[in-house]
Amino acid sequence: MAVSVWAVSSISRFPVPKAFQVHENKKPIWRIRCKKEGAEEMATGKNYYELLGVSVDSNPKKIRQAYRKLQKKYHPDVAGQEGHEHTLKLNEAYKVLMRENLRKEYDASIGKVRVAGFRAGNTPSSSLGSSWNGPFRPQALFVDENACIGCRECVHHASSTFVFDDALGCARVKVQYGDDEQKIEVSVDSCPVNCIHWVEKEELPVLEFLIQPQPTEGYGIFGGGWERPANVFMAAKSYNKQQQRWHEEAENENNRRKSRATAEEETPAQAKAREDASRKINMEGFSRFWQWQNKPFWGKKGE
């Protein structure tokens, strides 16, 4: 049930007689707990990720940064007593998202699952992409939905493995190894455009993530709509490469910090310029990915 907590800001705009400015009166503390019964955080219509303004995939470092930034805005030390309520939520969101086990539980409760493999890279996610029937195997099935012509042959031959998406007009894998091997083999062979691929298990999450249509930014009346990478395998490759480079950079950054004493002399201005430049390069290359990670994920799942 949606319990509306009164918008804090709207209250503070009107002068409230001092006598009534008692903490409990102003904010209905009692009602807040009701969120726990049903849909989480319905009170504000925001889940923890939205509250902190981070993507579902954010690593702890990003969450921490976002949390601190918001704290600086809403903490009662800065915002006065009005910030109390919001800071409570921030603290709660932060606590949950920073602990892996609590975060997993929370993710499940709001029906959002991080693309596994993006971070840790071991367990393929279940609800976003395909699920697994039986134990994990080194190879997995993947339908290149760009190439699929929507003939439904595969669904016909192996109905427990493949599913047809009527909205997009193409087939995709619902359950890995949902049928016996023979059926699967027949269905793969039956594809007239050979768009069903055997891929490495590790590659699957990235591919399944990238193949989802993503909204493109519109400029005025141009553009907009949905699109996906023309060649999903190339896109996955470059994504992995970028990811790896990122890790390396993060590591280098760490090393550099450690060996700062021995590093060559550099004026603070130079250091800043260099850092800004490298950050900019990184950001440009990644802006599309970030966009994907941040918005469409929601659009798609939240509908």
């Binding site: 903490h23 409990e24 503390i29 009692w30 707990r33 903490h75 009662p76 030390d77 007593q81 910030g83 109390h84 800071t87």
Partner: peptide, 15 residues
Amino acid sequence: RVILDIDASSVLRVL
């Protein structure tokens, strides 16, 4: 239901 609330100035309220 027992709620404990501490504000930033460390005031504790029990509801």
